[in-house]
Amino acid sequence: MKTTFKVVAGLALSAIAAVSQAQIKPSVIYDMGGKFDRSFNQASYSGAEAFRKETGIKYTDFEITNEGQREQVMLRFAQRGFSPIVVAGFQQAPIVEKVAKQFPKTHFVLIDAVVDLPNVRSVVFKEQEGSFLVGALAAMKTEHDAVGFIGGMDIPLIRKFGCGYEQGAKYISKDINVLQNMTGTTPSAWNDPTKGGELARAQFDKGVDIIYAAAGGTGVGVYQAAVDAGKLAIGVDSNQNYLHPGKMLTSMVKRVDVAVKSAFEDEMKGKFTPGLQVVGLKENGVDWALDEFNRPLLSEEDIAKVQDIRAKIVAGDIKVHNWEDTKSCEY
C-alpha cells in the first residue's frame, strides 16, 4: 500500500515537474512611473504582452510605488518561483544584486543597468548611437543651423542622450548650435508637459527649428509646442511618429520590448544566458524610426545619408562617445 502511494505520489510529482518545465512563470517589475507611462515601462509591458499573446503563457507584474517595496516584492517573486524576473529601470540594480545572490537558481533580467552575477542578464542600450543618428538628421534638416535637445530629469542617462545627439549634429555641421535644456531635477520632470512646452518655445525663440525630447511624458508638451510653432520634433523610446504626422521628424526607438520578450522566450526554450548585453544600432537595440508618418518630410538623399551614417557606426568607422565613460561630453 505504502509503495503504491509512493509510486503514485512520485508520478504525480514528476507530472507537476513536467508541467512546470513547459510552463515558465515569467514576471516583470516596473519602475516608478507605472506601466502605462507611454515610454520606458510601457515598452516592457508591451514586450511581455506580446509574449503572452503569442504563447498564451501568463506573466505576473508589479508596479513599484515606493523604495521600501523594491526588495520585498523582488524577494516574494523569487520565493514563489518566478523566473525570469525582468526588472525594468536602473534604480532597481542594487536590489537585483542583493536578491539575485540569495536565489542563484532564479533568472533575473535587468534593463538599463549592469549587475555582474551568474544568474543575471543585464541589458543596456547604446542610446548615444541612436541619438547620434537623429542628431545628424536634425542637423541635415535645420534651416537655421540650430537644433535643440530637451531632457527629462537631469541624470547621467539623459546626458548620454544629449551628448550623442550633439555629436551627431556636429558630425554634419561643425559649428551648429546645439541648445540643451533639462526639464528638472526631480522625478516629476518625467511628466511635466507644460514645462516641456515652455522650454521648447524658448528654444524656438532662439532660432532652433528641430527639438529632440528625451523626457518621458514631458515630451508630449514639447511635440505640441513644435506643432503650434510649425517646427519639428523628434520622439524617443517608442516610435512616436504617429503622434503628430508630418511634424515628427523621426523617433529614436529603444527596443525594451524586444529585450523583455526575448528574455521570456529564451527562458521558455531553456536557453537563458546571463551576462551583459549591450545593444546598439548593430543589434537593433536602438534605431531611428522611418514610417509613413515621417517619410514625406525626408528626401531619398536624407534617408540614404542617415543609413550611410548608420552603417558607419555599425561598422565602427564612427565612434560615438558615451557620456558615462568620462562624465562629460568631451570627445
Binding site: 543597468a113 547621467p156 558615462e324
Partner: peptide, 12 residues
C-alpha cells in the same frame, strides 16, 4: 548625481 553617486552607470 554630481558628487555622491559612483562614477559610471546610470546610478543615482
Amino acid at each position: 548625481v554630481v558628487h555622491i553617486s559612483p562614477l559610471g552607470g546610470n546610478s543615482t
